[in-house]
Amino acid sequence: MRGHHTAIRYPNFVAARSFWVDVMDWRVLQTWPYGELTLAYVSPPAQDDFHLEILAGPGAAPQQVYGDVDASLAASGFNHVCLSVDSVDDTLAVLRARGVDVVNAPFEIDDISARLAFFRDPWGNMFELSERTGHVHP
């Protein structure tokens, strides 16, 4: 088995597509209908083997939006999608300039040799930015 995509349910296709394409600069790979929904695979600008699947249309109930990463750990289920970046700080600067909701300041976890930060899409879904800082500890 290999990972292929993560799907996120959105209430509005045009708005979700606009966030991922216009704000985040991702690419639409494919769009198709599914009942009353519109679905699409979107991918980061320089990656072809990871997709985020937009599942959008009527009937989506609002979800819990947490004030910070630690608060989100109290609930079971989906928590976040991790995106690897060369520089957390540079990526956050670009996202802030684009008006993206940054959840927390960067922090480091030595046990996994990573510098991390989180941002939210306009619907409260969290995404982690991860920068490798050295060797992963066994």
Rank of each mutant, 00 (worst) to 15 (best):
M1R: 07
M1E: 07
T6E: 04
T6C: 09
A7V: 06
I8P: 00
I8F: 04
N12C: 14
V14M: 12
V14C: 10
A16M: 06
V21A: 04
D22I: 02
V23R: 08
V23S: 10
V23W: 08
M24D: 00
M24K: 04
R27P: 03
R27S: 03
L29K: 08
W32V: 14
P33C: 15
Y34Q: 14
G35Q: 13
E36P: 15
E36H: 15
A40C: 02
V42I: 15
V42A: 04
S43T: 15
P44K: 06
Q47Y: 10
D48I: 11
D48T: 15
D49E: 15
F50C: 11
H51N: 12
I54S: 01
I54F: 07
L55C: 11
P58R: 10
P58Q: 11
P58F: 03
G59V: 05
A60L: 08
A61L: 10
Q63K: 11
Q64E: 12
Y66V: 08
D70Q: 15
L73T: 04
A75N: 07
S76I: 06
F78V: 03
N79W: 00
H80I: 01
V81M: 13
C82Y: 00
L83W: 04
S87I: 02
S87C: 10
V88Q: 02
D89Q: 13
D90K: 10
T91G: 06
L92T: 01
R96I: 09
A97F: 09
R98Y: 11
R98L: 07
G99F: 09
V103D: 05
V103W: 01
A105G: 11
P106Y: 07
F107Y: 14
E108Q: 12
D111V: 08
D111S: 13
L116P: 00
F118H: 07
F119N: 00
F119L: 09
R120V: 07
D121N: 05
D121C: 07
D121E: 08
P122A: 01
N125D: 06
M126I: 03
M126C: 00
F127M: 08
F127P: 02
F127G: 00
E128W: 07
S130K: 08
E131A: 10
R132I: 09
T133C: 01
T133M: 08
G134P: 03
G134E: 05
V136M: 11
P138T: 15
P138I: 13
